[in-house]
């Protein structure tokens, strides 16, 4: 039987003491996609990922990875999984090359891949220096190399671009986007920034306070970014009420001295403005704005006010 999901969790829950840090989530990561696992700080991303890797046990629920139950097949699953959890892991007193060699040894893989993988993350120059002398970005890239060297079918990366500069981020993005196409790899990528994910991910799951509040193709999220027309006027509340009276959608934003409407069709807009002017409202400005994905994300996670 071929499974369509690389990761498939059922009612996965983890408690720390009494608190449910991850609450009954059903994560479905389709094969050969880049799945963006999004959530604000403390949402439970790392906790979920640790459970997927068997680093901590689930309090309840179950996990299937690459078609096998994690319970009882951990070893076989780990053979096909590469991971980078939280900050990059490394042995600082050893060189980047030796770090990679240790991973290949433990996976029973040939040493010959090391140089290839070092080239992917552009660490050939620094390969034989102790890792503790690396910059944060270099350590991060080494972490990604260590995740990739075992030739995994599933790559789990927890905030992999943490601490990278813009060009470093771009490089890693390009590398990640290549993986499903060129190597048949499924990628789970976590981040607390939507902007990090929207350019690479094809699928998105949003976790907030331990609950999965959205899951689906990125498009589905983008569709929510409906445009609105904002009208600056002297009396937004009355104007909005008047428009509602005419059967138009309108919402006042008293503080901003404006109202918002989902009416964006040109003919209708013209008619609406004409109506406002005829009713002696001062119209200062009319602008169309799209809600950004970031705003949708903040809205979904109920954080639009906290930032």
């Amino acid at each position: 039987m071929t499974e369509e999901y690389a990761i498939d969790t059922h009612q996965l829950t983890r408690k720390f003491g009494q608190r449910e840090t991850v609450r009954r989530i059903n994560l479905k990561v389709p094969k050969r996609e880049v799945y963006g696992f999004l959530g604000p700080n403390g949402a439970g991303k790392t906790t979920t990922i640790r459970m997927l890797l068997g680093l901590i046990r689930a309090s309840s629920g179950n996990i299937r990875i690459l078609g096998k139950d994690l319970n009882g097949n951990r070893m076989e699953i780990l053979k096909d999984v590469g991971s980078l959890v939280e900050s990059p892991s490394y042995y600082g007193h050893l060189s980047g090359y030796t770090n990679l060699k240790i991973v290949t040894l433990m996976h029973g893989m040939p040493e010959s891949r090391i140089n290839e993988v070092l080239a992917w993350v552009r660490l050939e120059q620094a390969a034989h220096r102790p890792v503790k002398s690396y910059s944060l970005g270099m350590k991060q890239r080494l972490g990604i190399a260590m995740a990739l060297i075992t030739n995994p079918k599933l790559l789990i990366l927890d905030e992999p671009t943490n601490g990278l500069d813009p060009s470093g981020i771009q490089e890693i993005r390009e590398l990640i986007m290549r993986l499903p196409r060129d190597f048949d790899i499924t990628v789970l990528l976590s981040s607390h920034l939507l902007s990090e994910i929207e350019q690479v991910a094809t699928y998105v799951g949003i976790i907030n306070q331990g609950e999965l509040i959205f899951q689906g193709p990125l498009q589905q999220l983008t569709e929510r970014s409906k445009p609105y027309v904002w009208v600056e006027t002297d009396r937004p509340r009355e104007a909005a009420a008047a428009l509602n009276g005419q059967g138009w959608d309108a919402e006042p934003d008293e503080a901003g001295g404006q109202l918002r409407t989902s009416v964006t069709y040109r003919k209708e807009s013209a008619e609406m403005i004409r109506f406002l002017v005829q009713q002696h409202y001062d119209v200062y400005r009319v602008t169309e704005k799209k809600k950004t994905l970031e705003e949708i994300f903040l809205e979904l996670t109920g954080q639009e006010n906290s930032l």
Partner: peptide, 18 residues
């Protein structure tokens, strides 16, 4: 010591064996 320091345990525990 080096397992505790920079997440070494995570490397060791990715070992696909008992």
């Amino acid at each position: 010591m080096y397992e505790h320091r920079d997440g070494g345990w995570k490397i060791a525990l990715a070992f696909p064996g008992p």
